Simulated assay, not measured.
Amino acid sequence: MQRGYPRIRFQKKLDRLKEEVDTMGQATLNAYRDAFSTFIEYDPELVKNVMETNRKVHEMGYQIEHNAMSIIAAEQPVAGDLRFIEASIKVSSHLKRICGLASNIAEVARHVKDEEIPEKPMFDLQRMADIVDGMVSKSLAAFLAKNMNVARELHRDDDKVDDLFDHALKEITKSMFQDKESISYSIYLLFLARFLERIADRAENIGDRTIFMITCEKQQFTLEKKQE
């Protein structure tokens, strides 16, 4: 019984680390949803919530890094356990960035709250936002469940977001040339499209990190290296 105790204690530490990443991920997803909701229908309380959640998520990230490093120092894990701990640090870093981008979206909402956005760009941005929402949710689920199939779906989803981003860019730019008065808010729509595209990239990176954690396939990190 005593011989197995260190492993039980170690597993409990890993389970706690996993729970911390899950909590951080759910807070990040909620911040993203609140941010886009207040872009659709401005709500100063939601903006305040997003900013506060961003602060808390960053604190969670630092705590996860500290706890992960403590486990490595105390337990000296190897192989799969070490990859999970390293992945938890990396995933928390991506979640911090996603939440930061969510706060940027909330800032965009402040600038366009009194503008009447044309139907076409709103439709494209909403489609992007819906796919990105699913990507963030999928990436977290894939990591927590160590589900490679779900992680691989993120590449296809990211391609869809990239296509929508290119289309939105063309449409918004075209409207700026056709209606000079739209330039003041169209700039913020371009920012919004870029923020959504970058969140999608981060979600894809979480999926890539999940695949690496499971298979140790190093070729998965092209986008991640590009962003760092």
Rank of each mutant, 00 (worst) to 15 (best):
Q2K: 12
Q2N: 13
R3W: 12
R3G: 09
G4A: 06
F10R: 12
D15Q: 15
L17M: 05
K18V: 14
K18E: 14
V21L: 12
D22I: 11
T23Q: 09
M24T: 15
Q26S: 15
D34R: 04
T38N: 08
Y42I: 04
E45H: 04
V47C: 10
K48D: 14
N49A: 06
T53Q: 12
K56N: 12
E59G: 13
G61V: 12
G61T: 13
I64C: 00
H66W: 10
H66K: 14
A68M: 07
I71P: 01
P77W: 06
V78S: 14
A79N: 07
L82T: 09
K90N: 11
K90H: 13
S93W: 03
H94V: 01
I98N: 06
C99G: 05
A102I: 04
S103F: 04
A109I: 00
R110H: 05
E119P: 03
E119G: 05
P121I: 00
Q126F: 09
R127C: 14
S137L: 08
S137F: 02
K138E: 13
S139P: 07
A145K: 12
V150S: 03
L154E: 04
H155G: 00
V161K: 00
D166G: 08
A168Y: 09
A168I: 13
K170I: 11
K174V: 12
D179K: 03
S184Q: 08
S184M: 03
I187F: 02
L189G: 05
L189T: 01
L190F: 07
A193L: 01
L196F: 10
N205S: 14
N205T: 12
I206V: 12
G207L: 00
D208I: 02
R209W: 04
T210Y: 02
F212A: 02
I214A: 13
E224P: 05
K225M: 15
E228R: 09
